[in-house]
Amino acid sequence: MTTATPLPSCPAAGSAVVLFSGGQDSAACLAWALERFERVETVGFAYGQRHDVELEARQGVLEALRAGFPAWGQRLGADRVLDAGVLGQISDTALTREAEIAYDERGLPNTFVPGRNLLFFTLAAALAQRQGIRHLVAGVCETDYSGYPDCRDDTIKALQVALNLGMAERFVLHTPLMWLDKAQTWELTEALGGEALVDLVVERTHTCYHGERSRRHPWGYGCGACPACRLRAEGWRRYRGLG
């Protein structure tokens, strides 16, 4: 399993597909991939999420990357948004309906969408197989996360085995943020693209579960109260040495 490593002196041969939601973590992973591969395609998923503003944010991030980082822009390939609406049809979660965020008896938040990452990786692998691409990159993380079981390293390792067996391929699932907390994710972002990339992430990405884009904080836009906003804000404070 790939984790964050020193930046290469030149991009590796080959291509990658980045699972790109439009949020902070996937934007950092996209930059990570653009440093490492000659060609990078992106894929997003419309699954009935209540914070579907993230789908609009995706395009803003891609446009800003092309404009502000020409070398990366030359490596950016096709972007697709796939219909994964079946998740919204079968899920009863705070991300797919209007509901207060709460936790169940197992400690799982009701923002957990069962099967989401499993389906996303499967769809991305099917797309990559058609394109002749074997590298998949995603921003799942076991260090600073909301307790989602499909973000765990063991889950991704098992899924890599299953995809390779089921498709007779040799996919590599890269998770650059797996062992990074949010402060370290900000640090990685700065290491990849300097303050310009940090500013891009602040201004362009969207992570808030409530889809709030009218409130601007030092770390970006959001309600400031949902778990995603609180995690992002706390990481920003530690990254900036604010306590």
Score class of each variant (00 low, 15 high):
Ala33Leu: 06
Arg36Glu: 03
Leu108Asp: 11
Ala84Arg: 05
Cys10Trp: 04
Val81Gln: 06
Ala78Gln: 15
Val43Met: 07
Val53Pro: 01
Gly193Lys: 13
Gly73Arg: 09
Arg50Trp: 02
Phe69Leu: 07
Thr2Met: 12
His51Val: 00
Glu35Ser: 11
Gln74Arg: 14
Val137Gln: 05
Arg80Ser: 06
Leu65Pro: 09
Gly194Thr: 03
Ala99Gly: 11
Gly60Lys: 01
Gly44Met: 03
Asp52Tyr: 13
Val198Thr: 02
Asp154Thr: 14
Arg215Ile: 10
Ser214Ala: 11
Met167Phe: 10
Leu7Ser: 10
Pro114Asn: 00
Ala191Thr: 11
Leu173Lys: 03
Pro109Gly: 03
Glu105Ile: 06
Glu56Ile: 13
Gly235Ile: 04
Glu105Val: 07
Pro149Ala: 06
Gly132Trp: 02
Val43Gln: 10
Thr96Ser: 09
His210Ser: 13
Arg66His: 12
His206Gln: 14
Leu82Arg: 07
Gln74Gly: 13
Ala94Lys: 09
Cys208Met: 10
Asp92Glu: 14
Ser9Leu: 12
Thr111Lys: 09
Ile101Pro: 12
Asp153Thr: 08
His174Gln: 15
Arg213Ile: 14
Ala33Tyr: 07
Tyr221His: 13
Asp104Pro: 13
Arg232Asp: 05
Gly107Cys: 12
Gln184Met: 10
Thr189Arg: 07
Pro218Ile: 01
Arg134Gln: 11
Ala4Ile: 01
Tyr148Cys: 00
Pro8Ile: 00
Tyr103Lys: 08
Glu234Tyr: 10
Gly77Met: 09
Thr175Ile: 06
Phe112Gly: 06
Cys208Leu: 08
Phe121Pro: 08
Trp219Phe: 11
Glu195Phe: 00
Thr205Asp: 09
Gly14Met: 01
Gly235Tyr: 15
Gly241Glu: 12
Trp179Arg: 15
Gly132His: 01
Leu62Glu: 04
Phe121Lys: 02
Val43Thr: 10
Leu76Lys: 02
Leu123Met: 13
Trp219Met: 10
Ala46Leu: 00
Gly224Trp: 03
Arg50Pro: 10
Ala71Asn: 06
Cys151Lys: 08
Gly115Asp: 09
Ile101Asn: 05
Gly194Leu: 09
Leu123Tyr: 06
Leu123Ile: 00
Met178Pro: 07
Cys229Tyr: 07
Asp144Lys: 04
Arg230Ala: 13
Cys29Ser: 04
Arg204Phe: 14
Tyr239Ser: 08
Ile156His: 07
His174Asp: 02
Met178Thr: 08
Trp236Ile: 13
Leu82Ala: 12
His210Val: 14
Leu119Tyr: 06
Gln160Thr: 12
Leu165Arg: 07
